[in-house]
């Protein structure tokens, strides 16, 4: 939980595997990195067993790059595809029982504040749509109502992809899946609206076909969660297996879905805007200067 853990123990340097040495010497720890530098530094995410071409993998990769202080971050997850990759990163990962990730994160976040005081330690929950909107729904909503200060990210693949393709609350109405052969009979849950009602300080929907936007959204969410309150990001991360999307068409699908029904949206509370501006120098929320008075026609 600090730069101290990202170094070699005395005498062990020469015995460490290449990946670990690269991580210590050329990883993102203690540096300011961005998606524009991708491919030129060692990323915290290592090899993992997620499917080829998975959009969720891409989102997790971008998220790990976007964390403002990876050395001071803990990720919390639950059952689902995402944990297969999230757990394979040089960031401590806590694996909750199915659905209790926001309860675990609440305790963790409070404990870290007691232990480390003002020094920011970020807790980020990354769970699937089943873990967030179905099985973990009660704990997710309550953590938001309590204004627990951590970030919740939903990896929304709109299906239980890990167990063969059952419908989830986030599946679209009418979708036919392997384990939902008659088609889903109910609408997709509106978790974004629920997050706003529950009082989240920052709510965003995003699709991973715009890496810079993903980076910006995650940075803001994590920074706001340090002091202001709960933050929620809902990311469309298609399941190319259960929805039979050819792997080379995953980004095309993301683009289509973004235009069709998953447009980028961002809600920031006034308190969070003020916090980002004053504390972290964000200029986009400053009041716009008044437009100059229109020239009076005929008086050049």
């Amino acid at each position: 939980m600090s730069l101290d853990y990202v170094k070699f123990s005395n005498g062990f340097e020469k015995f460490m595997p290449k990946e670990y040495r690269d991580m210590v010497e050329h990883g993102p720890f203690g540096k300011k990195i961005s998606v524009s530098q991708m491919g030129s530094f060692k990323e915290v995410l290592e090899e993992h067993p997620m499917c080829a071409g998975c959009a969720m993998t891409l989102f997790i990769r971008l998220a790990m790059i976007a964390f403002p202080n990876p050395e001071d971050t803990i990720t919390v997850g639950t059952a689902g595809c995402g944990r297969l990759a999230i757990s394979q990163a040089a960031i401590p990962f806590v694996y909750g029982n199915y659905g209790d990730q926001n309860g675990v994160a609440s305790g963790l976040s409070r404990g870290l504040r007691l232990r480390f005081g003002d020094k920011p330690k970020d807790v980020v929950v990354m769970a699937g749509d089943g873990g967030t909107a179905d099985i973990g729904f009660q704990q997710v909503l309550h953590s938001w109502f309590r204004k627990e200060r951590f970030t919740t990210i939903m990896l929304d693949n709109e299906v239980y992809g890990n167990t063969g393709g059952q419908e989830s609350g986030m599946t679209n109405r009418g979708a036919v899946l392997k384990m939902a052969p008659l088609g889903k009979k109910f609408e997709k849950m509106d978790m974004v609206q629920m997050a706003k009602v529950a009082g989240c300080a920052y709510v965003a929907t995003v699709v991973p076909n715009n890496p810079r936007r993903v980076e910006s959204v995650i940075k803001k969410a994590v920074l706001i969660a340090r002091e202001v309150g709960s933050t929620y990001i809902q990311a469309y991360t298609s399941c190319n297996i259960e929805y039979a999307i050819p792997t080379d068409k995953v980004m095309e699908d993301a683009k289509t879905v973004e235009n069709d029904r998953y447009a980028f949206s961002e809600y920031i509370s006034d308190e969070a805007k003020q916090y980002l501006t004053e504390r972290y120098g964000y200029k986009e929320f400053l009041p716009k200067p008044a437009a100059p008075a229109a020239a009076i026609p005929g008086k050049a």
Binding site: M38, G39, E43, L45, E46, E47, A52, L58, M251
Partner: peptide
């Protein structure tokens, strides 16, 4: 450098 940003696997396209 777009491919470095869109590859789902980390540390793969460098």
């Amino acid at each position: 450098k777009l491919c470095t940003q869109y590859c789902p696997e980390a540390n793969t396209i460098l």
